[in-house]
Amino acid sequence: MTKEPIYSPRMLHRDPDSPRPVLPTQLTSSTLRCSQFQTNVFCLRERDLLERFTSEVAQLQGRGESREFSFLLSHQLAEDLGKAFTEKAMLQTILDAEAKLPTGSVKDVLGLVRSMYALISLEEDPSLLRYGYLSQDNVGDVRREVSKLCGELRPHALALVTSFGIPDSFLSPIAFNWVEANTWSSV
C-alpha cells in the first residue's frame, strides 16, 4: 500500500494561469474562519513575496552584483518569503488532515485550532500591511477574531493537551498538582 506523500502535489505545483487571489474588503468572522479565505491570503502573500524577491535579486544583479551577494543583500525578503512558504505549507497540511475527519466535534475543534494557527500567523506578520495585502481595518478584524478564538478554545484546552497522550511519567509534577507535589509531606 502506497503511503500518501507528506507534501501533496498541490503544494508543489504552481499553476501560472490561476488568477491572483482577490480578498474581500470586509472580513467578517465567518470569512476569517473560512478555509478558502485563509488559503487565499497565504497564497497571495507567498506569491507576492516571491515576485518581489526575484525582482530585487534581478535588479541587484543587473547593477553588477554577484548572485551570491544579491541574495545576501535581499536576505530580509528571503526570510519573509521562506516563512510565508512554510506557513502556507503547514496550513495546507492541517486542512488536508481536517478534510479526512468525519463531521463531528473533533473536526469542529480542529477547525478552531486551524483558524487560530492561520490568524495568529497573519496577526504577527507586518508584511501584510507593508505590502498592502490587508488594510488597517482588516488587521483590526484579525486581531479581534484571535481574541474571540482564545475564548472559544478555552474550554477545550485541557482536553486538547490530554489528546497528546503523553504518559504521566513523562511529565513533571508541575503538570499536575504542583502545590501538592512540593508540600512538606512529599519533600
Binding site: Q76, E124, D125, P126, L128, L129, R130, Y131, G132, Q136, V139, G140
Partner: peptide
C-alpha cells in the same frame, strides 16, 4: 520589528519603513 504597530497606527508609511530599513 514592530512594524505592524507603526503601520496600523499610521505612524509611518510602508515607503518610510523601507527607507528605515
Amino acid at each position: 520589528k514592530h512594524l505592524g504597530d507603526f503601520l496600523s497606527t499610521n505612524s509611518v508609511t510602508p515607503e518610510q519603513a523601507s527607507l528605515a530599513n
